[in-house]
Computed example of a mutant assay.
Amino acid sequence: MFIREFKPADALTVNGLALMAFEQFRNAYKDWPGFRAKIAGMSSLADTGELLVAEIDGQIVGAVAYVGPGKPKADFFQREWPIMRMLVVAPDFRGRGIGRALAEACLSLAKRDGARFFALHTSEIMHVALPMYRRMGFEKVSDAPAINGVVYAVYLKRID
Rank of each mutant, 00 (worst) to 15 (best):
K73A: 06
G41I: 09
A101M: 05
L45P: 03
R112E: 11
Y155P: 01
V154R: 01
A63N: 06
I98K: 02
M84H: 11
A146F: 01
G58T: 09
F2A: 15
Y133D: 05
C106M: 08
G34V: 12
M42Y: 05
A28T: 00
P69C: 00
D31M: 07
W32S: 08
A21N: 14
R4H: 05
I147M: 06
D160F: 02
L156Q: 06
S44C: 10
P8C: 13
P145V: 00
A63L: 05
V14Q: 13
E23H: 11
M20Y: 09
R85G: 01
I39E: 10
A144V: 00
F6E: 11
P131L: 00
R96I: 06
V67A: 11
Q78M: 11
A115K: 11
F76P: 05
T48M: 12
T122M: 04
Y133R: 01
M84V: 01
R134K: 07
L51A: 06
R100T: 15
Q59Y: 01
V154C: 02
Y155R: 00
A144S: 04
P33Y: 10
L17V: 06
F76R: 05
D31F: 04
V53L: 10
D143P: 07
A153M: 11
A119V: 01
H121A: 02
D31G: 03
D143C: 02
S123G: 07
G70V: 00
F25S: 09
L87R: 09
A11S: 15
Q59H: 08
R112M: 05
Q24M: 12
D113R: 12
F6I: 10
G58K: 12
E80K: 12
A103T: 12
Y155G: 01
G95F: 01
E139K: 12
A115P: 13
M136E: 13
R96W: 07
A40I: 13
G49N: 03
V141K: 02
Y152G: 03
I60H: 14
D143L: 09
P33W: 13
E124K: 04
Q24F: 02
A9Y: 11
V88I: 12
L107F: 09
R135G: 03
I147T: 12
V88E: 08
R135K: 11
K140Q: 13
K111R: 15
A40F: 07
A129S: 03
L17I: 07
E80A: 10
M86N: 14
G95Q: 06
G137K: 04
L45R: 04
A110W: 13
M136K: 08
I39S: 09
V151K: 08
V89Y: 07
A90H: 14
P72H: 07
A18I: 06
V128E: 14
